Amino acid sequence: MVAASALLPPASTKLERAYADATDLFARTHDAVSSMRGIKLRNPPPSWLPFLVYEYGLGELTPYVPNLYDLIDEGIRWQRVRGTPASIFRALGWLGYSAALDEAPPRRRFWNVLQIALERVRDDEADLIRIDGVTTLSLPKRSTFWRGYHGYDVRALEWGRTRWGQTLWSAYSGVRIPQSDVKWSFGRPYDIDHAMTQAELQALGVWIEPTGEVELGWDDIPWPDAPWTSDAEHARSVAMLAAVPAGTAWAVFRDADGAVIGYRRARARWPVRPAPGGIYAIGSNRYAVELSGATRLYIEAMTDFGDGFGSTAFSVGFVLSAVPAAGFAPGARWLPAGGIVPAGPVVAETPVSIEFGRTVRERVRAVLRF
């Protein structure tokens, strides 16, 4: 470090040089100033954080990224790409989500609207407010974020461009929640493959005693003298399924105490057979309608947005034939406890964990093997 007096001209007096050295603040502050260099980037004290957030213009992100250390580290990088798809992906990553962007085609009147296809159903409804906030802040000024979806995405009808049976006449699927103008549309599937028990078949009044024929077993050595398939056993299964009362099936949702949360009308109830090209699926297996000779019954029910909101279902089963009780609309699709008659027997009851929400449709699919 050079003394301040060394910077004076050779003709300076001793008094001038002494005065220059005595009033030089650099000698006293040099070490402190050097140690401060970069401190706000490396490890700023907590008391500095609100001022750094203000300096970097990140205040609008504080409701969505409450950890100010994370906000400063990530927010600066976000500012550099703000208005691009990269900024949306980065902002969603702060919340633990990822998504694909779904922009409206140029042919549409509102060509500037944006949808996001999330990689999963939201963890909590409060997350939707944060997703709305960070996505809206990340968009270019011309764009509008108006819909997010996963698992249930039905589009509005476009004349001449979409199929009528796979679209809605009025609008895109989804609902809005308080504090957000964005429409949300989620769906979750639950698949059940159930072999009907003797107790269930007896409760339905369709039980037929087994024929007593010997069935072929892989572990039997030597193999018994039995056909590869038992016509009698097959006919027994067909007869039991055919004897099930016709009518509307209902999915029954129960809470942890076994009390009924609600009944949802099934939208499909068909005898089916395994078929690679079938229209119905349970896991990786597909099924086609078989109006005669079937040994399996396919049932599918899907709750509407808001059905059972505030409750958690711990089991789901099915009533195979019932109608709305007196006092309820004949065409009602969701009914409370006591809303259908008869209220049983309930078959294929399966443990689940379904937290009903305002933005999620729960899809329960089951194949019952007779």
Rank of each mutant, 00 (worst) to 15 (best):
D257Q: 09
A239P: 11
G357I: 02
G357P: 00
G187W: 05
T136Y: 01
G165E: 09
G293S: 05
S87C: 10
G151Y: 01
Q202L: 08
R358A: 12
V323Q: 14
G247D: 07
R236T: 08
R369T: 10
W250L: 07
R286I: 08
P276I: 02
R109M: 12
A6E: 15
G308D: 00
L216I: 14
A171M: 06
F328R: 06
A4N: 08
L8S: 05
V289H: 06
V175T: 15
M240S: 10
E209I: 13
P210A: 09
P9A: 13
A126F: 06
W159H: 02
R333A: 05
F110K: 14
D123Y: 11
A6I: 09
D219N: 04
G59K: 07
A322D: 03
E55Q: 14
Y149T: 06
R296V: 00
T295F: 01
L49Y: 08
V367L: 00
R82F: 07
W207P: 12
I261G: 04
R120V: 02
S34A: 13
H234A: 12
L25Y: 01
I72M: 09
A322W: 12
S353R: 09
L118P: 07
A32M: 07
A337V: 11
A203H: 13
V364N: 08
E119G: 06
A226F: 11
Y54R: 15
R82Y: 01
P330M: 02
I116S: 02
P178T: 12
P351S: 09
S143V: 10
I192R: 06
R130G: 01
V2L: 10
A366M: 09
R142C: 10
A343T: 12
I279L: 02
G262D: 04
V154M: 10
L49S: 02
R82P: 00
Y64R: 03
Y19T: 04
D73F: 10
V367Y: 05
E158H: 01
E362R: 08
H234S: 12
P105R: 01
L114W: 00
R130V: 00
E119W: 08
W250V: 00
V2G: 03
F186E: 05
L15E: 14
G217K: 13
G212Q: 12
S315Q: 00
D231G: 13
I192E: 05
V341H: 02
L15C: 06
A156E: 08
Q198D: 15
P85Y: 10
A313R: 04
I76T: 09
G217N: 12
